[in-house]
Each structure stands twice: as C-alpha cells, then as structure tokens.
C-alpha cells in the first residue's frame, strides 16, 4: 500500500496490510525497562528469602518435579521464538508500513503458546496436589508454589500485553515502541522462567 498522509478508513484496509505507525515516543520502551527492574528486584528478594529460609531450619523437603514442567519450558521458549519471528516481520515491513500475514500468524501463535504455558503450569500444580504436595506441606513446596504462581501471573500480564498489541494492530494504530515493549517483557518472562526452573531444580 502506498503511504498516504491520511489513511481514508482503517477498517477498509485488509488485516494483512495494516499501517504500523512510526514511534513518536520511547516512553513504553523505557517503562518496560523500569518495570523489569522492579520485577527482577522482587524475584531477587524471593530468592534470598528462599536461601535464608532453607538454612534456618531442618524442615526442607525435596520432591520430584512434574515432568510437564519441562514441556512447559519448551512451550515458553517456542513462544519467544514465534514472537521474534513476528517482530522480524514487522521490522522488515515497517518501512513499507505494512504487516505480512505470516508475521501476524506468528503473533497469534505466541498468544496460543503463552496460554498453553499457563494451562501447563496449572496441570503441574494439579499433579503435585494429587501427590499430596500442598502449599503449606513444607517450606520447599511453599516456595515452589509462590515462585510458579507469581511467574504465571506475570505471564498472564504478558498475554494481556500481547492482546493489547493485537488490538492496536487491528485498528492500525500500533506504535513500534509498544510492540518492542510488549515483546521485551515477553522475552524477559522466558528468561525469568529459565532462571526460576534452574533455581528450583537446584534447591528442591
């Protein structure tokens, strides 16, 4: 589509060819960096609490992880990959102010995989419960639930961010910085999960 100064009606432009506005402010991008700093600090605090609590009494109990946890890990990594594919699509088409259909599909794929991760986490909790490992069973299980539930809540926040991006995209008013911000948050959630998995695997 030729770049026009005033797009006549957004609704008439097909979904595959939506205009991506060049960014006019770095604020969303900065905001996400600042938010990630706070999230990092929060999980650092939880980590130090876990290390201190493990050393303070002899009631730490080790239990095996549900296998589905590893499948979830792969799902989340894959969702990051699809998001990156989607983003590459946007970056390439930005100069022409269009969005390729494969990129859009990759974005929907990310959304589905993200939902899959959250559902998978729920299944992992369910499995643990059926084995009698509850939140209050031992400090190790307490920390396991706290870490995984809070991470899942943050992932749900990321899903909301993706929905926001998609809705902006469908209305043709997406800014590059908004897309970058949402995807940076999403990648961070994957990295955070890898860290948490390693931490829990070492300690529990």
């Amino acid at each position: 589509m030729a770049a026009t100064l005033q797009p006549p009606s957004i609704a008439k432009i097909p979904l595959e060819v939506r205009r991506v506005k060049p960014f006019d402010s770095e604020a969303p991008s900065t905001g996400v960096w600042v938010g990630l700093a706070a999230i990092t600090m929060t999980f650092a605090a939880f980590t130090s609490a876990m290390v201190v609590r493990q050393g303070s009494a002899n009631d730490w109990r080790h239990f095996p992880f549900p296998t589905i946890l590893y499948i979830n890990t792969l799902t989340l990594i894959l969702s990051s990959v699809t998001l990156q594919i989607a983003r590459q699509g946007f970056v390439l088409t930005d100069q022409a102010a269009t969005i390729a259909k494969p990129a859009m599909n990759a974005l929907y794929g990310t959304l589905v995989l993200g939902c899959g991760f959250v559902i998978g986490q729920y299944m992992a909790w369910h499995e643990l419960r059926s084995e009698g490992v509850y939140l209050s069973s031992a400090p190790s299980s307490s920390f396991f639930y706290v870490f995984t539930v809070l991470h899942a809540l943050h992932v749900i926040g990321g899903l909301c961010g993706l929905l926001y991006v998609i809705s902006k995209l469908r209305r043709g008013v997406l800014r590059r910085s908004t897309l970058d911000a949402a995807s940076r948050y999403w990648h961070f959630m994957a990295i955070l999960w890898l860290y948490l998995l390693l931490l829990l695997w070492m300690r529990i």
Binding site: V34, A37, A38, I39, M41, T42, F43, A45, F46, A49, R53, A57, D59, L135, S136, P139, S142, V146, L150
Partner: peptide
C-alpha cells in the same frame, strides 16, 4: 521506591500466606 517497594511486596506476600495459607516462612516453632 521502585527497588525498595519491590522488596516489601514479596515480604507482604509471604506474610499474608503465613497468615491465611498455613505456610511457615516467618512463624517460628
């Protein structure tokens, strides 16, 4: 405040769990 309240929040989460969910993060024997 960004970094300080990011530590108070987890502390409060653990405290609330100790009070309502029967966990033992802070409550001693």
């Amino acid at each position: 405040g960004l970094l300080a309240f990011a530590v108070l929040l987890p502390a409060c989460v653990l405290l609330i769990l100790d009070r309502v969910a029967g966990t033992s993060f802070f409550v001693p024997s």
